[in-house]
Simulated scan of single mutants.
Amino acid sequence: MNEITKATVHVAVYDTFSDWEIGFATAHVNGPLWQKNPGRYEVKTVGPSLEPITTAGGLRILPDLALADLRPEDSAMLVLAGNDLFPTEAYVPFTAKAREFLDAGVPVAAICGATGGLALAGLLDDREHTSNAAEFLNSLGYGGAHLYRDEPAVTDRDLITAAANAPVDFARAIFERLDVYEPHVLDSWYKLYGAKDPAGFYELMSA
């Protein structure tokens, strides 16, 4: 049997990384259960360097790859979680990499403070998007206020954005963009995790 060639979803990691915002996405992208093509994706972390980072939850992560070595053509998606670094120079390399991905037609998914970093970089000026609140992005003086949508998660072309309190909606948008599940399976997944309806569990078991 031929071995499946895996595509890599890269998760950017940095100090103050908001652990809770990407757990649904990474666990289900990396795990084959219910997937349309089981084993198609793997998740790897990319940091400012190969030095360990410490998340907001106090976890230490040793990145698989340094940001400078990440190329869009080697990735299926770049995922950016919230953080306290987004308005500082330390986060500029990550927004620059996001621009590189978008220019290459490779999707980027950003949640919480990471959307603030993208706003400061001008990457939300011509795409529909969301964040924690319109006021949050407006306080940054960005030029995309007319494209803000008050929704848990928004996808516009190759960019996914989400609010900090919407990790399930963020995950669903990622699964949709990556074509992880058949549509009816994704509906059942969201019924279970998003709507908290136990019927979704039984539907997934039958899938």
Rank of each mutant, 00 (worst) to 15 (best):
D19H: 06
A163F: 02
M1Q: 14
K97V: 07
G23T: 11
D64Y: 01
D84H: 14
W189C: 04
V106K: 05
F24G: 11
M205D: 10
G143F: 08
A25P: 07
V154M: 12
G82M: 00
K191H: 04
I111W: 01
S49Y: 01
A98D: 08
K6H: 07
K196I: 06
E151T: 10
H146N: 15
L124T: 10
G113P: 02
R99D: 07
L159A: 12
G82R: 00
E42I: 07
R60T: 15
T26H: 07
A133Q: 13
D156G: 12
L78P: 14
A195D: 15
R127G: 10
G57Q: 04
G58C: 09
K44E: 00
I53M: 05
A163Y: 00
D156F: 03
D158T: 12
K196Y: 03
G58P: 10
T8N: 09
D103P: 15
F17Y: 12
F101E: 10
I53N: 14
E182D: 13
E151F: 02
N165L: 04
D126Q: 12
A171T: 13
I22T: 15
D169F: 00
V106Y: 01
G117V: 08
D158Q: 09
D156W: 02
L147C: 11
L118S: 10
L147R: 15
P183N: 05
N37A: 05
F136P: 13
A164E: 14
T45D: 06
N83W: 00
A7Q: 15
F17C: 02
I160H: 03
L65E: 08
A68F: 00
D15I: 03
G57T: 03
A110W: 03
P198F: 03
L137I: 09
W189I: 05
L67N: 13
L102N: 12
V108Q: 03
A153C: 09
E128M: 06
R177C: 07
L59Y: 11
D187L: 00
L204R: 10
H10P: 01
L50F: 03
D179S: 06
L59H: 15
L124V: 08
T130L: 01
G82L: 08
N83L: 03
L204D: 15
A171N: 08
A134T: 10
D169R: 01
V43Q: 06
A12C: 04
L33A: 15
A199H: 06
A98F: 04
Y91P: 02
G39F: 04
L178D: 12
A96L: 04
R157F: 13
R172C: 12
E21Q: 05
V106T: 11
D126W: 01
L50M: 14
P72D: 05
T115W: 00
F24Q: 11
A27D: 13
G117C: 05
S188F: 06
E182M: 08
D187N: 14
P107W: 07
E73A: 15
D103M: 00
G58T: 12
E42G: 14
A66L: 00
D179M: 06
R149T: 13
R40V: 07
A121S: 11
H10G: 10
G141T: 02
G39E: 12
R177G: 15
Y142E: 11
P167D: 08
V11H: 14
